[in-house]
């Protein structure tokens, strides 16, 4: 069960950490409409993470809760991919990061509708719809910014360069994920490449953007080998919970 638990935690951590990053914008967005849209996207991802953490806790079967999973694991135990922990940067970077993630997760959850696992199927139905909305929302911004002013086009291009190293890891399966894939519980990550390329090429075409060629691909998140940003995310996120061990909120 430990193997399946780790595979589920990878998915949960991706959603929580990206949900956290997006929530950092709340109250500080470029326009009021985005002050509403970003918490929405963040809530979608945190909601998905909660269901998955509860499932991971259930699999461990030691009476743990979703909060134990989120608040009491350290940096080296977090299994999210590197893309989701990247700093928000400017609005162009945030929207491109969201597009990259959603363009992967939407077909992934679609495929997960055929999972042999009830919980995974349950999460997939809701999450696939949400991710389709995130593709639309973030994609529209990538188009507006890519084909907006000189400055916005320049910022969009910088974002493409900055995030390029973190794309490939989305399509890589850890040993835990492979075991779950072989059991028909989770979709095969590498199979999402064609759908992802199609979404990104379509949007980049409208945004007058070129995909980044020849990048050195980073990875390590699935082994708990992160950049320096994650430790700070967790230090903030877990601070109150950890200051009051055992407290109920």
């Amino acid at each position: 069960m430990m193997i399946l638990q780790n595979a589920i935690l990878e998915l949960a951590d991706d959603n929580l950490i990206l949900g956290h990053r997006v929530s950092e914008w709340c109250g500080h967005a470029p326009i009021l409409e985005e002050d509403l849209a970003m918490p929405n996207m963040s809530l979608d991802m945190i909601g998905t993470a909660r269901t998955l953490y509860a499932y991971a806790a259930h699999l461990e079967n030691k009476g743990q809760t979703e909060d134990d999973m989120a608040y009491l694991r350290d940096e080296r135990e977090y299994l999210n991919c590197l893309l989701v922990e990247r700093p928000n940067g400017d609005f162009a970077t945030t929207m491109l990061r969201q597009l990259y993630f959603a363009a992967f997760m939407e077909p992934y959850w679609q495929a997960a509708l055929n999972s042999t696992d009830d919980v995974v199927r349950g999460v997939a139905g809701k999450a696939a719809k949400e991710m389709a909305y995130h593709i639309r929302h973030a994609g529209e911004w990538v188009i507006r910014l890519g084909d907006g002013t000189d400055e916005s086009a320049r910022r969009m291009k910088t974002a493409v360069t900055d995030l390029a190293p973190y794309v490939d890891e989305l399509f890589q399966s850890s040993a835990a994920a492979k075991a779950a894939e072989d059991a028909g519980i989770l979709p095969v990550r590498a199979d999402m490449r064609a759908a992802w390329d199609k979404t990104i090429n379509h949007i980049f075409g409208l945004a007058m953007l070129n995909p980044q060629e020849d990048t050195f691909a980073q990875s390590g998140g699935r082994q708990g080998l992160h950049g320096e940003g994650l430790g700070h995310i967790l230090a903030v996120m877990q601070s109150i919970n950890r200051a009051h061990p055992g407290a109920v909120w």
Partner: peptide, 26 residues
């Protein structure tokens, strides 16, 4: 306190609340 909310349930509720306030502004 959004990024520090001590449980995921409270975090989600707080996010939704702050979002509502933005909606009121709108």
């Amino acid at each position: 306190f959004i990024t520090r909310a001590p449980s995921l349930k409270r975090k989600a509720a707080l996010l939704a609340k702050v979002q509502d306030e933005g909606g009121h502004g709108l």
